[in-house]
Amino acid sequence: MGKTGKAQAAKERALSLVYFKDLTINSASPQKTKEAGRLFARILEYGDVVLLGGELGAGKTTFISGTAAGLGIDENLSSPSFTILNIYTKSKLCLVHADFYRLDGIDDILNTGIEQYLGAKNTLTFIEWGEKIKDFLKKDFAQIYFEYNLLDKNARTISIKGSGPAWGKKIIKLGKLLKNAHFGN
């Protein structure tokens, strides 16, 4: 391998350390979780897929409702646990809010028709309990995990990571936005 080749490989290796970078913040309340979601909207690009995980009531839907507000969607986001897929549109944007809580197995998941939305034009896809589809995604995606804070019933810990260089860059940008909005670790 020539000098350029090694440099290139090293650069790629260095970049690879930026992949899956974990960004962890503390949210003091549901309102702060929603605000974090609103800031998250600012780093999104059409075709993005975001998987959300964490216990019941930990803030997944609240976060997404903040993102929707940040994208200019006026409607109230209610839980798609029963309907499985809720679709919101705002001019050309299509926001898919899915919840796989009630689904068992990949057949069930594919039967919902989710595939046509993943990475589609002008579409942003958010999937609660999305770990179930993780291994079948062809594109890079972000993962957000929500946890209760045992010392404070209103507080949550939110961890954000993404696969691929594009998400790596977006998460760095997000980190700055969250820091400026006083979200600490």
């Binding site: 109230n76 209610s78 839980s79 646990s81 029963f82």
Partner: peptide, 14 residues
Amino acid sequence: GHTVDDAAGEAFDK
């Protein structure tokens, strides 16, 4: 009027 988050039946199920 409507629910702003979970439906009642959903709360029972969850």
